[in-house]
Structure formats: structure tokens, C-alpha cells
Amino acid sequence: MLSISNLHATVADKPILKGLSLTINAGEIHAIMGPNGAGKSTLGYTLAGRPGYQVTAGGAQFDGQDLLALDAHERAAAGLFLGFQYPVEIPGVSNVQFLRESLNAQRKLRGEPPLSGADFLKVARAQADAMGMDLDMLKRPVNVGFSGGEKKRNEMVQMGILNPKLALLDETDSGLDIDALRIVGEGINRIMRKPDKAVLLITHYQRLLDYVQPDFVHVLADGKIVRSGGPELALELERDGYKDLAA
């Protein structure tokens, strides 16, 4: 589904990714772990097409397309979702309006008919219910006045509504208490653990992996993947830290 080869990227002319290669197949869940400053968030932003994140070498294929040739909104329509570490507030725009416009913009690019208000609400309500979010929050402005945990939960509701092929989840576990962590973990499994979908979890800690069992774990250090393994690698990192790897 996603094949990244020798990816180099800079932010404000500073090299951050320095030859990263990774292949993710449909049906797989991957976790990328690593110390602060390793380039984890940069990887997510670069793949999602954030302006200012400059690819200087290498490439990425997504579902048979040249991912890097697409604009950010085209990547979204192609089925790529980025769960934000710090979800952004948009005052005056309700969640419902935001997501309906987003979903219909995606559908338009894919040549699908728009979803009516009623049909959209049905989908939105089901996804909000599944994440234990009440309808009032859907009607509130996007992330405005939401607690850290509510924002992350809202990311999962959005993911459920937009129903992507590939989710890049950037520290979705940060700022969550134990109950919220479980709900978010279950959400990821429910929405994304399917034979035709894939997930890349970007995280510092093992704890989310207790709920979302990864098939592969990679260690990112200084802009490259320095080690890959199975779920046991996450436990080893939890025990020993990154210090031996960063060198």
C-alpha cells in the first residue's frame, strides 16, 4: 500500500529525514518509535504533504500512485489520513460542517456523488457514538474548548467518518488517561484493522501498543530507520530506552 524509498526531507533547509525506507502492506499495522527529534512527526507531515516540508531525494508510492506528486488534499482523497499530535482549533466552524465539507470534497475528487446532510449525519452519529462522544460535541466548533483527550477522540471520530485506507497516527496516545487510551485504541482497531487498510502509529511509548497490537515495530533515529522487528522490539525499547540506538 505504501512504499517509501530512501526518503530525504528538509524543513527550513534543515535535513530531517535522511534516507528513510519503509514498506507497509494492506492489512498491516506498523509502529514507529524513536527519541525526540528523530524525525517522527516530520515523516507524518512529509507524507501528508504539508507545505514547507521539502522532499530532496527519494520517493513514496501510495496505492500505485506517486504520493509526492499530489497536493495535501489530493492525498487525503486518495485515502491518506493524518491523526494530529496537536489537533487544531477552527473557531466558528462546527465539526459537522467541517467534516461534511471535507468528506464531500474528497468524494468529489474521487468522482463520487456528495453525501446529503441526512446521510452524513447518520454516519457521523454512528462514529461519534462508537467513540463515546455526544452529539453536542459534533455541533461545537472544531476542537475549540476541547480537552486534550477530547481532541484525540475527535481525531478518531474524524478518521471513522473519512474512512481512509492508510492512517498515520502521530502520537495519538499523548495526553490520554488510561480510559481514554483504551477507547482510542479500540477505535483504531475497529476502524482500521481490516484486510484492505493499514496503519502507521508514531509513538514514544509502548502503552498504546498494549491496545493496538502492531505487526512490525521500527526504530527511527536521526532521520533513518535503524532497526525493525516484531512487537517484542517495543517492549525491549520500553525497558532499555533509545540510548544504544541513537548513536
Partner: peptide, 23 residues
Amino acid sequence: DQLFYAMQRGLAQEEAVALIVNG
């Protein structure tokens, strides 16, 4: 941040601007 957030959800840049301004 706002612009990219909206674009990542599927809105083209000008749609994102319109949405934020209307808000």
C-alpha cells in the same frame, strides 16, 4: 496549522481559506 489541518481532511487550499474565514 489551520490551513494544513483542513487540507489534510480533504479541502483544497481555497476551500480551506473560505471555511476558516466563514467561521
